[in-house]
Simulated assay, not measured.
Amino acid sequence: MNLKETQKKFHKTLSEIYPKSEIDTFFYWIVEDVLQLKRIDVSLNPDFEINEKDLKTIKSQMNRLQQNEPIQYILGHTEFYGMHFQVNPNVLIPRPETEDLVNWIVSDLKHQPKKHLLDIGTGSGRIAIALKKELPKCEISAFDISETALQMASENAKQNEVKINFVQQDILKLDSLPEDVDIMVSNPPYVRVLEKEQMCDNVLKFEPHQALFVKNNDALVFYRKIIELAITSSKCKTVYFEINQYLKEDLKKLIQPYDINKIEFRKDFRGNERMLKLLID
């Protein structure tokens, strides 16, 4: 079977599940991954014959897409902040919105003296690694409760040639921060269980629920704990969060009793309130 015929088969098989543009993207990603052919190569060589082994791989990946499995897990990798990251169902797939959070931190710190940043709930390591790449003078540590997530984060740090201090830690059981931490950043679990019905199967069936969901009656548990750790720290006076856009007002109420000098919300590239910065007295 040649490329043109395979692409037609791709569209016929997946057309009832995904829009045409998304099917095209999947097809070109898979062809590049399996055959090492760029999009332009596909256009210039539609009659390129695919050998049986590669065709079997492509069909297998197409069948996995039929089951709503994310393309990033199928390929085993994705891009974030211009870098290559390995991913699997033990870690969340990096989202482009999180790049806006990294941009904010880099913009604030690029002309500052060396700082020690702590990334809480690092997952694939995408925030910590991107920050280390952009702020090489800074020391970066990263916590996660999952040993398997930390193994992947360590591989990603090695692949992207940066040094991160990864530590397995349940943040909810932590009594105090390391004394030398200046800044915390976190994209913690913040999706309420009640929001599950609004979510797509590719997230619900495949991404790690531990990294996504919180109880409906205590949706801000991680934010509260991280703020309390910062409040009791002698040195950490700045915290950056990715947030649930629907919980902005609840976050304001949570923050109100604390001795926090300044709070700033920011929108992501889609115009949603998804980021928060706290400056603590």
Rank of each mutant, 00 (worst) to 15 (best):
K196E: 13
A142P: 01
G123I: 10
Y246E: 15
N2P: 00
A149R: 06
T238C: 13
P70S: 09
V42L: 11
K8W: 06
Q245G: 01
Y258I: 05
K277A: 04
S43E: 10
E79T: 10
Q210N: 05
F26Y: 15
K267G: 00
K196F: 07
P113E: 14
L75W: 06
L55E: 07
S60L: 15
F241I: 03
N165W: 01
N63K: 15
L194Q: 13
K248Y: 03
K158M: 10
E97H: 08
H116R: 14
H77A: 09
H116N: 14
K225Y: 04
I255N: 02
P178N: 07
Y240W: 08
K4L: 14
E242C: 06
E97L: 11
L254Y: 07
Q112Y: 07
V87E: 04
K115Q: 15
F27R: 02
L229C: 08
V191A: 03
K20S: 12
S21V: 12
I255K: 09
V193D: 07
K20V: 11
K215I: 00
D54C: 04
V34A: 03
C200D: 11
Y258V: 04
E147Q: 15
P257N: 09
R192T: 09
I74G: 00
L194P: 00
P96F: 15
Y28T: 11
K248P: 00
E32H: 13
S186Q: 03
E69H: 07
Y190K: 06
V162M: 05
M199Q: 06
